[in-house]
């Protein structure tokens, strides 16, 4: 019929005299937008964000190193115990300082001495519970072969790395703690309990259990706080943890060292570069058919 299509309109209620399969060369897909919210990443910001993962993996490597040394009988359990308790105290002081600074910025809520006492009480409770449970933990998997234990702990630690919450905000949009981060912590604690059951003395089991609680339950809280407040401290902490992971690994074996170094390097430096490279394949299609987002209130 009409070949030019100059007066074609995008309407259905009027017969415009065009064939039903007529496609207007200009109006067709004119409201299609590709990658409207495209924001290219910068390498440095990505590396800074990946530091959280690096720190987490480093802490697992350090923990594994401690376990191997304890098992070989090279490291004294008492030393580990004092080290863990020292780390806990230093970490707690840092945490209370940082969070009091942050909360005075936001809501004016101060950490009172009452809360400090409460923390002391519950930490003593955890301490006593672990010390009374350590004989049970030591014989927990006596009937299981060591190979199954290695496999099980590997699975549990992998789960911990995959499910861990690496974001600054510990809560989701409803203000609740995310389920995956709780699962992640539980996986890590179970993994360490299973590993601890391979140790020979009650004291060693207790020391490793305390160490795992400090590493997997308390450290992520401090990590998040540091990430939110100070960039230089964040980088320094990453370097410290990475270096100590490698240092601990050198005492175990060469293979373990290579594994540790290559994992940390890939995660920190190669993975962000790969993400930046993959960004050029991003093809987000938007148009009038998308479900609109209602603006209420």
């Amino acid at each position: 019929m009409k070949p030019d299509g100059g007066n074609w309109e995008k309407i259905l209620w009027k017969n415009q005299g065009f064939e039903d399969n007529y496609i207007h060369p200009q109006f067709f897909l004119e409201s299609l937008r590709k990658n409207p919210n495209f924001k290219p990443y910068t390498y440095s910001s990505l590396v800074l964000l990946t530091c959280a993962i690096t720190q987490h993996i480093s802490s697992i490597f350090i923990f594994l190193g401690i376990f191997f040394r304890l098992r070989a009988g090279v490291l004294h359990p008492r030393g580990i115990l004092w080290f863990s308790m020292g780390a806990f105290c230093v970490g707690y002081v840092c945490w209370s300082l940082l969070s009091s600074r942050q909360s005075s910025n936001f809501r004016g809520r101060k950490i009172t001495s009452e809360q400090h006492l409460k923390t002391l009480k519950s930490s003593i409770l955890v301490f006593l519970a672990l010390i009374s449970l350590s004989p049970v933990l030591r014989t927990l998997t006596a009937a299981t072969s060591s190979d199954s234990i290695w496999a099980l702990s590997a699975v549990l630690f992998t789960l911990n790395v995959l499910l861990a919450d690496y974001s600054v905000m510990p809560t989701n949009e409803h203000g609740q703690v995310r389920l995956s981060s709780v699962l992640s912590m539980n996986a890590a604690i179970s993994g360490s309990v299973v590993l601890a059951s391979r140790l020979s003395t009650d004291m060693a089991v207790f020391a490793l259990a305390i160490c795992s609680v400090v590493t997997f339950a308390f450290f992520p809280l401090l990590r998040r706080l540091i990430q939110g407040t100070c960039t230089s401290a964040w980088v320094a902490l990453t370097l410290l943890l990475g270096a100590s992971a490698v240092w601990v690994a050198t005492y175990i074996s060469d293979t373990f060292t290579y594994l540790c170094v290559s994992t940390l390097m890939v995660v920190t430096f190669v993975a962000p570069a790969m993400l930046m490279w993959a960004q050029k394949f991003k093809n987000e299609i938007r148009g009038p058919w998308d479900v609109a987002v209602p603006i209420v209130g």
Partner: peptide, 8 residues
């Protein structure tokens, strides 16, 4: 609009 969507 449906046609644009289906074509894509």
């Amino acid at each position: 609009t449906g046609r644009e969507n289906t074509v894509l």
